[in-house]
Design a binder for these strands. Structure first.
Lengths: 142, 142
DNA sequence: GCATCCTTTTAGGTTTGCCTAAATGATCGG
DNA sequence: CCGATCATTTAGGCAAACCTAAAAGGATGC
């Protein structure tokens, strides 16, 4: 598989902290399909970058900075995934795409998209842009 | 800067072929801000992958496969960039984001987004979703 | 308290894309 | 045709993220 980025490690640690209460080397390794030694190495790097606290043999804990990064990514993920699903993209594909795109969308764009999703959600049922769009798609198919 | 991907090389070669008539090592190097030896190396790799034709000292020529990849990327780029601009994202940011996202959007999603952009463009002036959205944004700001 | 077992780290190696410096190929004026 | 010049390639290295195998740390049962 592809090389894992700092952001992927941070997301994984965040997920594990929430789900399991802590993020240990082996758990992280399993989660991102990498061997434990690679995780150890990366954890040191993340610590130097101020994203986690790390001591040998005691797992990783996100710092406030790290946590902020994780939240930001999760937020972007949700925005992108929601939008794609509203557009009619298949759930699994929307999720997979969002996993990638969350790492490449600027905050400005994400905020704008968030507003757009909110707007779509708030439009009255049967009158909203998504309904019109679906109709448009169906008609176009003839 | 970040490491250049196969796709970035292919896009650059395509652009140079169109703009300058050919894509030589030095031109490619300049374009993607990398030294010529790195380009030589990558060109060999691209050739092995069947994306370009390459002989020492004679530049690169996209194969049909390579050209298809370039077109696909360009199409995705345009779709994403148009959409973001329609959403009100600043032009430069939309472009920059599209440059990244084009490499991570699935064809399914891109096609769906293309339809959506088409739908937005075809909605009657003053009645379209984008106008409603803009109004929504303005109102929300109070 | 210690032996065992499991997890983690250390040590050493691979791959990939990039680099610089040096060598080679191509082209062009005379 | 020959040499100068410029572009390209070769040679040799570096860094990052990964790997395997072996060593070391920590926890648990007796």
């Amino acid at each position: 598989m592809r090389k894992k980025t700092v952001e992927e490690y941070i997301e994984t640690i965040d997920a594990l902290e929430r789900r399991e209460g802590r993020a240990q080397t082996g758990m992280i390794a399993q989660e991102i399909a990498v061997r434990p030694p690679s995780v150890t190495e990366m954890l040191r790097k993340l610590e130097k970058g101020g994203l986690i606290e790390y001591k040998s043999y005691s797992g990783a804990i996100l710092t406030p900075t790290g946590r902020r990064m994780a939240c930001d990514l999760q937020k972007k993920h949700r925005i992108v995934a929601s939008f794609l699903e509203m557009l009619g993209v298949d759930h699994d594909i929307a999720e997979a795409d969002a996993c990638q795109i969350e790492h490449h969308v600027s905050s400005e764009t994400a905020e704008r998209l968030r507003l757009f999703v909110e707007y779509l959600r708030n439009s009255p049922p049967g009158r909203g842009c998504t309904e019109h769009f679906e109709r448009y798609c169906r008609e176009r198919e003839r």
